[in-house]
Design a protein around this nucleic acid. Structure first.
Lengths: 234, 234
DNA sequence: CTTAAATAAATTGTCGACAATATTAATGGC
DNA sequence: GCCATTAATATTGTCGACAATTTATTTAAG
């Protein structure tokens, strides 16, 4: 069930396993965003040495979940609204290009698989009109398959290896149970069509608009929230 | 003179310094691409412990200059033609978006600085019609300033922190003394115009075409090379 | 009482050694 | 003579300890 990352092969070493555990804890918010990380503390908590923990921290740094300053220490990244919007901008550019390349490079079998993913979403569509969690997973799954379909190792690395978990972190911590579920699904359909037609240019445009729409949706939401809180302040 | 990376602050720790030295050695080809890295060997060579070396290797991994496999070891990345083209695709997407954001977000002063950089290039333009090395540096410098001008931390991180040295590595190892010097300069001029006009859409298109042109130029070169070598094979 | 300097505590960076795994060399069977 | 298995070697992963630096506390001065 868990999305296996092609860029990060099976965890074998203990540092790998601890990395995954901490990663999960950060993404889910069990280790709060922006908090300082105590190397001796975490090492003791996981019953490993500091060297091993530092190895894990290095990998967390690679996917931008923690930041380190020399002689000072590590902190979990801060979840700011600006940061979230920045990531969406990057995604718009990269996933747009990935989608273009997917249209050019995906095999017929991959396209068939992508279609079947959407078909599955469609089936469970009606019964989950309120429950959007699965749709969240489904959305990620769709995007994931398109990215891998680009067959561009650099794109896959950056999007799946580095940004993927950061995006999940933001989604969870900002509590985004996307109200765009059905519209997003329709957009997915159109994107797949463009890919199946091998129309890279259109595929890129559609994916970019799809992500830009998400971003604008968030911006609107934020604007409402701040407007609401400012009336509360009065 | 040396381009200071805003994402990687001054090296203070010995691991940082060793990292920079190895980075330089890899980019310049003193440590050959694709070669295996012996931890005990390199550690002895730099007169540091393995722990410190591994710390440096982790940073090299972050900017995609070395790859590590569990229980096997580290290798310098391979410089394949496919890899080079993949990077150009990523750059086209990211720098295009960076350019759009630069048009929206750069301060007037930053734009003035960007213009002055080009003016300097123009002055030395006539005397370096054969010598393209400076143009190389100048090209990087221009792109660098645009990226930073996007004011998007994520974009800056990925492009300046991760891809920058990889691009340099490819340029040096494939011996690219861009024969597009004067045309590239003209394209830079048009890009700056678009930025100064705050026309993000045009700025993105121009930057994408600028990078795509470089990519196609390389593709053409490669095609010629392989055609040449195949005739040699006969 | 507030501020500055000095001291103490804690944290990070670096080191060398040992354990686990992978690679190479040697041995034996066919 | 060639392939599989086993032994030997080398390399990577992990550990605990010490050095260097930062942070917190205490002390002293104004």
């Amino acid at each position: 069930m868990a999305l296996v990352n092609p860029t990060q092969p099976q965890a074998v070493t203990t540092a790998d396993k601890v990395f995954e555990q901490i990663q999960h804890a950060i993404v889910e918010g069990h280790i709060p965003a922006g908090s300082k990380i105590s190397e001796p503390g975490l090492a003791k908590q996981f019953e490993i040495s500091r060297s091993t923990l530092r190895e894990a921290l290095n990998r967390l740094e690679k996917c931008h979940l923690v930041e380190r300053k020399a002689n000072v220490g590590s902190r979990v990244v801060d979840c700011s609204i600006e940061g979230l919007l920045e990531i969406y901008v990057v995604r718009e550019a990269l996933e747009g290009m990935a989608c273009r390349q997917a249209a050019e490079n995906m095999s017929e079998q991959e396209i068939a698989e992508l279609k079947s993913v959407l078909a599955q979403h469609a089936k469970s569509q009606d019964l989950k009109d309120g429950v959007s969690y699965y749709q969240e997973e489904g959305d990620l799954d769709f995007h994931y398959k398109v990215i891998v379909g680009s067959h561009n190792q650099q794109l896959i690395n950056i999007l799946c290896g580095q940004l993927y978990h950061l995006v999940r972190m933001y989604r969870i911590q900002f509590g985004m149970n996307s109200p765009r579920a059905t519209r997003a699904f329709d957009e997915h359909l159109h994107i797949v069509e463009a890919i199946a037609d091998r129309d890279g240019e259109l595929a890129e445009i559609l994916m970019r608009r799809h992500i830009a729409a998400s971003r604008k949706n968030i911006e609107k939401k934020i604007a409402l929230q701040s407007a609401h809180s400012s009336t509360e302040d009065n």
